[in-house]
Design a protein around this nucleic acid. Sequence first.
RNA 1: GCCGGUGUAGCUCAGUCGGUUAGAGCGUGGGACUCAUAAGCCCGAGGUCAUAGGUUCGAAUCCUAUCACCGGCACCA
Length: 481
Amino acid sequence: MNYYVANAIPYVNGEPHVGHALEYILGDVLARAARQQGKQVIFSTGADEHGSKMAQTAAKLGITPGQLATQMSQKFIDLEKALNISNDRFIRTTDKAHEQRAQIIWKNLSHDIYKSKYVGWYDVKEEEFVPESKADPARMKPDHPQAYQKLEEENYFFKLSAYTDQVRQAIESDVFKVVPKTRKHEILSVLKEGLDDISVSRPVDKLNWGVPVPGDSTQVMYVWFEALMNYLTVLGYPEHDDFKKFWPTNVHVVGKDIIRFHAAIWPAMLLSLGLALPKQLYVHGFITMNGEKMSKSIGNVVAPSEIIDKYGADAFRYFFLRHIPSYEDGDFSWDKFEAAYNNELANELGNAVQRTAAMVMKYQNGLVGNIPPAEHDNEPIREAIEACQFDRALDKIWEQVRGLNQYIDETKPWAIAKAGDKEHLQEVLAYQASCLLEIADLLEPFLPATAVKIRNIFESGVIRPTKTTLFPKHETTAQPK
RNA sequence: GCCGGUGUAGCUCAGUCGGUUAGAGCGUGGGACUCAUAAGCCCGAGGUCAUAGGUUCGAAUCCUAUCACCGGCACCA
């Protein structure tokens, strides 16, 4: 069984933030869960590096766009490392292979690409066209000091309009499944209205930071159009074995701001290429900070590294997977994060491990004995992961953590020890170890490092006298009111 | 303006096909314990299920209207 998870590739025009981190983690859970089930997995992430914004930013910094791209992409790669993300690929749209394969894709789409004139409002200062819907009407009047110019430009267009109906049907029937449902409804209503053909190239004389249109040196591909192609080029479309084995994408992980590209334009491109559509598109939400939109001007941006450095990758993963709703927007605050860390990770899980290990050491010289097999029904957890409801999956795993603590308090192994019933005590402690190993398995996709730690403690049946605190307590962060 | 969603405990949210006394976590009050990271466990308080009608033997759940908030799309300036 082959399984291909593709994360959206972020535009690397700015520093990675917690939203990027969230997306990495979401994809990572899917990839790790699939691997755990014995599937062959390709999990791809990457960077979208072309386009006018990159060119402008680089110009401001006095470096080439290529230098900026390399610099910025490295920061995203560093974030993945810090979060223990298990991506198999990191594709950059400036990779030679991507550029060459993008040109092949363009050629294979050419029956749906035609040349036409684009007419629109052009913002001279920003050097870009302003879409009618976002244009400031005052500036449409020629006497305005910063008036737009009515410009005409020759572009290539893609016949998106020809495919909206097919795409709509695929989504409606769940052949191409969009989750959560509210996102499915949203995109269906867009598709029902029908979509216009889209401009997919830019003249080189205005922007040369892009992939050249094959056979026309005066045009480069429009960055969005070309970036979408990464999901194919990363597999080596059209001739590589990986493409043959792993296409179509099992789950596509994207943010809610880019549904249109992934649920309308991209599937239309695939239909035009005669390829199967992804099986599932998972649309996640955004993160607010203390209930407010994250923004540099408000100054409420928390860098992922601030959290990871203090609490570790698994704690970060835990909070964003369980306490940011998988189907909605969520909120980060240090208060919430620390409450989750202390109550759930340190006290409930960490302490369950600790007390179990301590009793085995104290009463049985570290010998656990025969550990019985796991006994819970974990099908609902598997289903939750499949539906990308990671928050629910973790809720259910935590029911087991709590259940174990309840079992310990009800069974009172310390009282059994005092009574001298060695056989019964051994049974109870082995059962505790069994529960913890089961929990470790369930946590594997979510908190991989923690899963390993728990296994290392109990798996061999002999507990070594190393003090292993899974989640040490920290000073809480003073919250500026 | 059109479409969709949401409104349930102080907070965040579950609640299936309409069916006993509406649930969980956090927070809060109390209790018993000692294996453990002052952790864990038990018990309690806390609800006009947004509002008003309707259908029904029976409504948080279905229908209608209203209000509030959120999202998407369109439009105007």
